[in-house]
Design a protein around this nucleic acid. Sequence first.
DNA 1: AATGCGGCCAACCGCTGCCAT
DNA 2: TATGGCAGCGGTTGGCCGCAT
Length: 285
Amino acid sequence: MGRAPCCDKDGVRKGAWTPEEDQVLAEYIKKHGHGSWRTLPKQAGLLRCGKSCRLRWINYLRPDIKRGPFTAEEEGTIIQLHGMLGNRWAAIASQLPGRTDNEIKNFWNTHLKKRLLRSGNSLGAQELSFSPDQSDVKSESPSLRHMAQWEKARVEAETRLSMELESSLLNSCSTTNSLPDHFLQLWHSDVGQSFRDITKKEPVSQSPTSQASSAFANMTQEQASICQPKLDDGTAGSESDSYKFLDTSDSALKLLLDMPDGNIGFLEGLGQTESFLCPLNGRCD
DNA sequence: AATGCGGCCAACCGCTGCCAT
DNA sequence: TATGGCAGCGGTTGGCCGCAT
């Protein structure tokens, strides 16, 4: 049985919100929180459906909404994340504080997509269609393409992490603390979680430990606790899913470092363009 | 000044996944 | 385990606005 529609009842207003409605909704939520969206309109005295109220609050009335044009940095982040995640606007929005999925979706559709198409730059080309020599990947579903991209980025990040760890071990852990890896932040954020959720559904053979995990394996617990990189820029994913390297246990390290080697082979066919994460990790030199 | 056109964006629609029962 | 209700998500639409003619 289908669900009863929530927005086609008589007496339910549609269309643009009036300032009065905005005020009623905002004040109600400030006082009581949104609670159940379904019952909110009645309790707040609004002739709107719950969905409409939710959307209005999330996209317009929320106090932490960031207004104004997207910065170049935000643009770069959107492009990179879209390359990895596709049209998963909510996941992308979770990495851009103050921006809503709707806003990002509109911005992508009206600005970035066109710009990438026009410029035909490498990222745009990568995003909009894989190069001909990647036909195997191209023929796969978008989610597989994005998985491949995620995996590639992760392998690169692990390589970096491995090098950093080894050098940090040699240097008494003096450098690692100041080198948060943005990809790994992402990996441990909501976005990374959503990707891991996808890969969980795939039959993945347990991999041998990577170089990086070997580095950890050779550390004593004390060393590990001292050398855990710190996240101090506060930009990682929000709430509970954010980057928690400081709390890593052995199992968490395994989660981070074990890679499904059965899935790596296909990555070699991707063609090694310059790391598409450059704008994120800031190390393109 | 009037009209047409295209871009932008807020809001709606319908599907999906999660959770409670 | 199956079912139904809900919130959340992504795609789409429609109206407004600015610009060109």
